[in-house]
Design a protein around this nucleic acid. Structure first.
Lengths: 119, 119
DNA sequence: CCGTATCCGATCCGATACTG
DNA sequence: CAGTATCGGATCGGATACGG
C-alpha cells in the first residue's frame, strides 16, 4: 500500500502500484464502465471479499479507480476507472492478448469463448 | 516457474508469467536489442545475480526472451526479446509512461532525465 | 564471465468470523 | 450490500558462498 520515497525507475513504481494477483483483473473488469462491489465479486472467479476490498482500496489510493457512494439502504457503491486507470487498461488489454496467444499456442483453449473473453 | 493446468482468465496466466519485482524491468532493458548477462546486471539497479538469472530463466521458459550462447572463454551469452517479448514490451512501455506521469504528478522527478528514462 | 545452491525474514493471500 | 479483523501457510526475494 505504501510506496517508497524514491525510485530508480518508473517501472519499479508501477510494479508497486499494480502488483498482486488481482489488480489487473479488477481493472479489466471495469473496462465497460461502473460496477458495484458485488458485481465485481461475482464476476471475478475465486476472489475473496477481503482481497477484493483490499485491492480496490489500493487502486483508489493510487488513482487508478474512483468510487461513488450513495447513501441509503441497502448501501450502493459504484467503482469506475479514472483517466490513469483507462491508460493502464490499454496496457492490460495487450497482456490479455498475450495470455490468449499463449493459451492458443499451448492448447489451453477450452475456457475461451469465441472472443477470448472468459467472464 | 510452473503454470497451472488451467486458468479461468488469460490475465491470470499472464500474471503468473510476469509476476515478481524484476521481469518488466528486464524486458524493458532489452528494448534496444541484445544484452549480455553482465550488461543487464549492471544496468538494472539493485538486482542480485541470483534474481537476474532466475528471472531470465523464467522469461525464456515462457517464451518472452531467448538467448544465444557462444562457446569459448570467457563465456559469452546474449539475451534478446522474442516476438511475444516485443508484444509485452509494448504493454510495458505504457506502464513506464504511467510511472512517469505519477512521478511528475507527485514531485518525484529528481531521478528522471529529460526523456524520463533513468538507466 | 556465467550459472547454481541454501538460508531466512518479509510479504502475500486464502479462510474465516464479525460489524454498520 | 459494503466493509473490517485476525491467523497461518506459501511464496518471494535479499545475502552469501560456491562451481563451470
Amino acid at each position: 500500500m505504501k510506496l517508497r520515497e524514491s525510485y530508480t525507475c518508473p517501472l519499479e513504481l508501477v510494479h508497486d502500484i499494480i502488483k498482486g494477483k488481482w489488480k489487473t483483473i479488477i481493472i479489466f473488469q471495469l473496462r465497460n464502465g461502473k460496477c458495484s462491489f458485488s458485481e465485481l465479486h461475482h464476476s471475478i472467479a475465486g476472489i475473496t471479499q477481503k482481497m477484493l476490498l483490499e485491492q480496490l482500496r489500493e487502486l483508489k489510493h493510487f488513482g487508478l479507480i474512483d468510487k461513488k457512494t450513495y447513501d441509503g439502504y441497502p448501501l450502493k457503491v459504484e467503482y469506475f476507472l479514472t483517466g490513469q486507470g483507462e491508460k493502464m487498461l490499454s496496457a492490460i488489454k495487450i497482456m490479455q492478448e498475450i495470455g490468449i496467444d499463449y493459451m492458443v499456442e499451448h492448447g489451453m483453449t477450452e475456457i475461451l469463448d469465441e472472443k477470448g473473453i472468459c467472464y
